[in-house]
């Protein structure tokens, strides 16, 4: 009986993985990485890691002969056992790397620099040069024609609503009635409150048919984001929409026209009250907010918005 160092290191790594995910849940940092709807999956991962850790712990002191009784020569230890020491060392370093950075650095909230990389996906937003703008618009028009002739637009108007049959524990779920009630408020209430749980659904409704919301009051928050090619007085009050995890976020947000727009820095969180109006950018009707009231706010504890989900009972 002797100790097998390789197995010892692996047991250690499995334990650290479990500790890392436990830490994310314990501190709530998990919310900065993935959609809260999917936290159950990572809790399952903790259980699997701990279980595998125990199995691995047994292997550390396993007698070599004992192993080979179990798992005769055919049970190829084809994995990394055959590699040289330095190769195995590098492999373990690679696997430890995310754990070191995970414990070392707190998760960052995506900011305007990432938004600029991802780009705001609106046909009106051009790349700063006129030719690029026209180019994008031509593509936009091509889309329209294309979609008219070959691809029908989704029959369901509520684009951003995932309907899940299996309800998981999460705060973002709405029942069908709650959701309908929220959507009704879009037309009935005096002032449209773009709350986080309904933000994405309201946003897609308003951008689909901006004309019918002209003159409506709206209250919305987001971070200050400006793309090349915007006018002096324009900016977008942006949010990141997260489907699964930070890697699949896209940037959405309302265009704002405000004369003192230059007084604000990118990434500043603002709460704006104003009136919806539409402008015409190269044939595209696009909503924007005329500001009545503007106030700087702290970055919210949950900076991301998620597609609303309806619970079907």
């Amino acid at each position: 009986m002797f100790m097998r160092f390789q197995h010892f290191i692996r047991a250690l790594i499995l334990a650290i993985f479990a500790a890392f995910i436990i830490k994310l849940h314990y501190t709530g940092e998990i919310m900065s990485y993935i959609n809260p709807r999917y936290t159950l999956m990572s809790k399952i991962a903790i259980a699997i890691f701990l279980f595998l850790f125990l199995i691995q712990l047994v292997r550390i002191w396993e007698n070599r002969n004992h192993t080979h009784n179990h798992c005769s020569s055919g049970c190829h230890h084809d994995h990394d056992h055959s590699g040289s020491f330095s190769k195995r060392f590098i492999v373990h370093l690679i696997i430890l790397f995310p754990l070191v950075t995970g414990f070392a650095f707190a998760p960052a909230t995506l900011d305007a620099s990432i938004a600029a990389k991802k780009g705001l996906m609106l046909p009106q937003v051009n790349e700063g040069t006129a030719s690029m703008g026209e180019h994008l618009n031509r593509m936009g028009e091509a889309t329209d024609e294309k979609s008219a002739e070959s691809i029908e637009p989704p029959a369901n108007k509520d684009d951003s609503i995932i309907q899940h049959t299996a309800p998981l524990a999460n705060t973002n779920y709405l029942s069908k009635e709650q959701f309908d009630k929220e959507m009704e408020k879009l037309t009935t209430s005096d002032i449209i409150q773009m709350n986080d749980n309904i933000y994405a659904s309201y946003y897609s409704r308003i951008t689909e048919d901006p004309a019918s919301y002209i003159g409506k009051k709206i209250k919305v928050s987001g971070f200050f984001y400006k793309e090349d090619g915007f006018e002096e007085n324009q900016f977008v009050l942006a949010r990141f929409l997260m489907t699964h995890c930070v890697a699949d976020t896209s940037v959405i947000g309302m265009l704002v026209e405000f004369n003192e727009a230059n007084d604000y820095q990118e990434d500043t969180w603002l709460e704006i009250e104003g009136e919806i109006n539409v402008t015409n950018y190269n044939g595209h009707v696009m909503p924007f907010i005329k500001v009545d009231k503007l106030k700087v706010i702290d970055e919210p504890s949950e900076p991301y918005v998620y597609p609303a989900m309806i619970k079907i009972v």
């Binding site: 990572s42 991962a45 950075t101 960052a108 995506l110 699964h244 995890c245 930070v246």
Partner: peptide
């Protein structure tokens, strides 16, 4: 963390989020 450019912290967040999302499925 004081000297780290914020782009590295953003990179790290995206990197870890891909892993956290993928690891349950990998397991």
């Amino acid at each position: 963390s004081i000297n780290m450019p914020s782009s590295f912290l953003q990179l790290n967040t995206i990197f870890l989020s891909i892993l956290i999302e993928a690891i349950p499925f990998i397991l």
